[in-house]
Design a protein around this nucleic acid. Structure first.
Length: 271
DNA sequence: ATCGCCTCCTGCGCGC
DNA sequence: TGCGCGCAGGAGGCGA
């Protein structure tokens, strides 16, 4: 569920509670994630001060003076700032406690996420070193996407969901940005014109930015927030709307499986 | 090198 | 009401 905007919102929400704080204890109730929690994690981060928090792709990185660690929320994970009065709920797998009796609590029902020690050069970790540009930076522009797309024969939707092309575009945002740019998800990547690449880049940026804005207003209270409402739901053009009317032309929204993923589009608005 | 399929896991919604 | 099935999703890994 967490796509890039949710991860960014989470990062912004927890950051002020953690900067400059010392990690006093780490409680690991479950170590089986996408990758198991390393046995060295606890001793490496305990008694260290959190100097800064950053985000790369959907990874949230925590920087300490002896190295960094990171958390990925997978598809069902969430992070909360809480305290030891709050009862431990199902799937509350890890607590990172600070010296001010605040707890960063990692909940992840499906355990698709991870919590990994990275060492002193986090950017060299195998999960981070092959990542493409961040979509909300100058690196991600039409020129880049056009060049990168030459000679590629896969559906454009798969292409933009590939993390080595651009990070942070999950299934929902891929569908939405292709609708906004008027491109069918099944179009072969190399057939996109430069103009279409421009439209697609603009659409991806627009969708991600507006979603961050919405997430920012809905999820601002992280201390007592008890869930993520479908705040983005009402603004979706195509995702999850098969057989419903296109909000632009009233045609019926189509559903097709592309690359094992549900792909929604409007036949009339997208070519 | 590139692409597509499989897999990890649990909760939910549907149909019977 | 209860059960079981199928699907959802991020993204690495692997086989073709």
């Amino acid at each position: 569920m967490p796509e890039l905007p949710e991860v960014e919102t989470t990062k912004r929400g927890i950051e002020p509670h953690l900067i400059g704080k010392k990690i006093s204890d780490v409680v690991i109730r479950e170590k089986r994630f996408r990758w198991p929690i390393q046995s060295c994690l606890k001793k490496n981060i305990q008694n260290q001060i959190i100097l800064s928090v950053s985000r790369r792709s959907k990874y949230i990185l925590f920087h300490l003076s002896n190295g960094s660690f990171m958390i990925h929320l997978g598809m069902s994970g969430s992070l909360r700032i809480t305290d030891n009065k709050q009862p431990i709920k199902k799937h509350d797998h890890v607590d990172i406690k600070t010296n001010e009796n605040k707890i960063l609590r990692f909940n992840d029902p499906r355990r698709f996420g991870c919590l990994l020690w990275l060492g002193r050069q986090p950017q060299k970790h195998f999960l981070l070193c092959t990542l493409g540009p961040e979509p909300l930076t100058d690196e991600f522009k039409a020129d880049y996407l056009f060049k990168k797309s030459r000679g590629r024969n896969l559906p454009i939707k798969n292409f933009i969901m590939n993390n080595s092309v651009v990070v942070g575009v999950g299934n929902i945002y891929a569908n939405e940005s292709l609708f906004i740019s008027g491109i069918r998800p099944s179009r072969k990547t190399h057939k996109l014109t430069k103009k279409e690449c421009q439209k697609l880049v603009d659409a991806i940026v627009k969708v991600l930015k507006s979603s961050i804005d919405m997430g920012g207003t809905t999820l601002k209270d992280f201390v007592n927030s008890d869930g993520n409402p479908g705040y983005f739901q009402q603004s979706l053009f195509v995702y999850g709307r098969d057989n419903e009317q296109c909000k632009v032309c009233m045609s019926k929204i189509q559903l097709e499986r592309i690359g094992q993923r549900s792909s929604y589009f409007c036949k009339k608005c997208q070519k």
